[in-house]
Amino acid sequence: MTRHEDEEIFDSTTEWVAKHIRRYVETDGKEGHLYQGWPTLLLSTRGRKSGKLRRTALIYGQDDDRYLLVASNGGSPQHPAWYLNLAAHPDVVVQVGPDRFAARARAADAAEKQPLWRLMTSIFPLYESYQAKADRDIPLVIMERLR
Rank of each mutant, 00 (worst) to 15 (best):
Y67T: 14
G97C: 11
H89D: 06
V70E: 03
A87K: 12
D63E: 15
D63R: 14
H79Y: 13
A81N: 05
D64L: 10
D65S: 12
A81W: 01
S72C: 04
Q78C: 14
H89E: 04
V70I: 11
A81M: 08
N73W: 11
G61A: 13
V94S: 05
D63Q: 14
P98Q: 10
D65V: 06
A81G: 08
L58S: 05
L58F: 03
V96T: 10
D99A: 00
A71G: 09
Q95I: 13
S76Y: 07
W82F: 08
P90A: 00
A81Y: 09
Q78K: 14
P77Y: 06
D65W: 05
D99Y: 07
R100K: 02
A87F: 11
G74M: 01
L86V: 02
Y60S: 01
L84Q: 15
D91W: 13
Q62C: 13
H89G: 00
S76A: 15
A88G: 00
D64N: 14
S76I: 12
L86C: 04
A71M: 01
D99H: 13
N73H: 04
D65Q: 14
L86Q: 14
G74D: 06
A57Y: 06
Y67M: 01
A71S: 02
R100W: 02
L86T: 00
N73T: 10
S72Y: 10
G75V: 01
P80V: 07
L68Y: 09
V96Q: 12
L69Q: 00
P77R: 15
V94H: 11
N85H: 11
G75L: 03
N73A: 04
S72Q: 03
V96R: 15
L69W: 02
V92E: 11
D99W: 08
S76V: 01
H89I: 02
V92L: 03
D91A: 11
Q78L: 10
V92T: 08
N73M: 13
Y83Q: 08
V70P: 10
S76Q: 15
G61P: 09
H89W: 01
V94N: 09
L58M: 10
W82Y: 03
L86M: 03
Q95V: 00
V92A: 10
P80T: 13
R66P: 10
G61Y: 14
D65A: 02
L68K: 02
